[in-house]
Amino acid sequence: MSKKKIYSLKLFLLVLPFIILVLLFSYYPLYGWMYAFYDYKPPKTLSNCPFVGFKWFESLVSSETKVQQIIQVLKNTFAMSGLTLGTSWLPMLFAVFLNEIRGVKFRKFVQTVTTLPNFVSWVMVYSIAFSLFNSTGMLNSLLLKSGVIDQPILFLQSSSHVWFTQWLWLTWKNLGWAAIMYIAAISSIDDEMIQAARVDGATRMQIIRHITIPSLLPTYFVLLVLNVANFLNNGMEQYYVFQNAFNKEYIQVLDLYVYNMAMGSGGYSVSVAISMLKSLVSVVLLVIVNGASKRIRGESIL
């Protein structure tokens, strides 16, 4: 073997341990999809469980109640993702108007304070929600004192407006952080263009509409496309910590449903089957939106 070849292999061997980690923790779980084709019962190993083919996939559409349940879960998923997608312009607006504030100190303060919630975990957010909105929490105490109500309202145990309140929490946590990218993009806008517009007598709103926002749209579009690709991936942490017996019907998104099915009722195989379908749909979505992005903007996002 030539010296060059040996050196090139040596470089590879140095990264090999890390590649093995990636194979183990990101690729090997794909092998876990096998469980969807077996009747897996936890204490046994997979080889001791009977092969059942597509039984679990068929079971998803076999009974009326099952179909009802899955439709509700899909509704929840679509509603939560839809709300996020429909308001995905909010961070852009946040950045644009924050930029209109002249006081640098105030601007920095707002930026720091509004990005803070992004760095606390969902458990923390739930703890905060609990403190503010439980029966002796801030809001109830305030409403009781002012005589608006005479019985505490159980906000967190309510089954109404679940989609909306979950969207509110998500926005509270993410808005400031999501705006940072736009804030940075605004600072790279050509200043002369804005000056020229101003000399021509443009008002602030006109500058925002005709210069600032158009120059932010490419960033917005990329993020929007990624959002679409992640339509089915809401994650489960937020919904898991907020779920309770009262709101369960409306809070179960696909990711949480998969978890509850497996860990709650031991239906490992069937939940792997759902996971599998979900992952496949996500990859297809990603390929489609990436293709669309290439077509429309001549630019791939991957």
Partner: peptide, 29 residues
Amino acid sequence: EKMWLRKFWYRLIVATMYFNAGIIPWFLV
């Protein structure tokens, strides 16, 4: 640049950003 199959290994790692086996398969392995 001299690393054997450098681009392939790099893409192999970066690709994991875009797919996910799901939490239960992950838990099982």
